[in-house]
């Protein structure tokens, strides 16, 4: 993965917080020296529960191209059921990374040619004391475990800042547990 310019596509459901997760990673990237950061949600009419996509581009230089990501380096899937509903790996670069929130075992998936990282973020979030279904902070821990991109310290700081009035410690704990428990390979 070219560490100068990275494209991450997030797949979630409307209302699940994919945008917030991407925003936290964007902020962490920016303070880490990625001066070019662009994050765009799915454009259009919205509905809670609908499959949505968020694109995040990070670069050491200012980003001038705001068009949709065609060949992502990393795919983050906040809900494993989306694998049935949308072609989430469309365009993923060979050797690209898939970060997946799933209750199923790592071994039950076969994404040939890609690296996979799985964790049951739904369960981990509950373990961290969050309400059922709030997976957008835990997934950040999985992303970091899979990619070693920005460093947990800076991401934890970003999570606690974003959620400073809404259970900051529980949210960062979800990310920490997810980091420990994420299985990555392939």
């Amino acid at each position: 993965m070219n560490k100068e310019f990275i494209e991450i596509r997030w797949h979630g459901r409307g209302g699940q917080g994919a945008i917030t997760a991407a925003k936290i990673v964007a902020g962490a990237a920016f303070v880490s020296g990625y001066s070019g950061v662009v994050m765009a949600p799915s454009f259009g009419t919205e509905r809670r529960g609908a499959p949505v996509m968020t694109s995040l581009k990070i670069s050491k230089e200012k980003i001038y191209d705001l068009s949709p990501i065609e060949t992502p380096d990393i795919i983050v899937v906040l809900d494993h059921l989306l694998l049935n509903e949308a072609d989430v790996v469309c365009g993923l670069k060979p050797g690209g990374v898939i970060v997946l929130n799933t209750p199923k075992a790592f071994e039950s998936y076969n994404f040939k040619g890609y690296r996979l990282a799985t964790a049951d973020i739904t369960a981990i979030s509950v373990e961290a004391g969050l309400p059922h279904g709030m997976v957008n902070t835990g997934i950040i821990g999985s992303l970091e475990k899979a990619t070693n991109l920005l460093g947990m310290d800076i991401l934890i700081k970003g999570i606690e800042e974003e959620f400073r009035t809404r259970r900051p410690e529980k949210n960062s704990l979800a990310a920490k547990i997810a980091f420990e428990k994420t299985v990555a390979g392939g």
């Binding site: 765009a40 454009f43 705001l66």
Partner: peptide, 10 residues
């Protein structure tokens, strides 16, 4: 619209 209005950047 959307491309700038809803996109986040520094």
């Amino acid at each position: 619209g959307y491309i700038l209005s809803h996109t986040y950047m520094p």
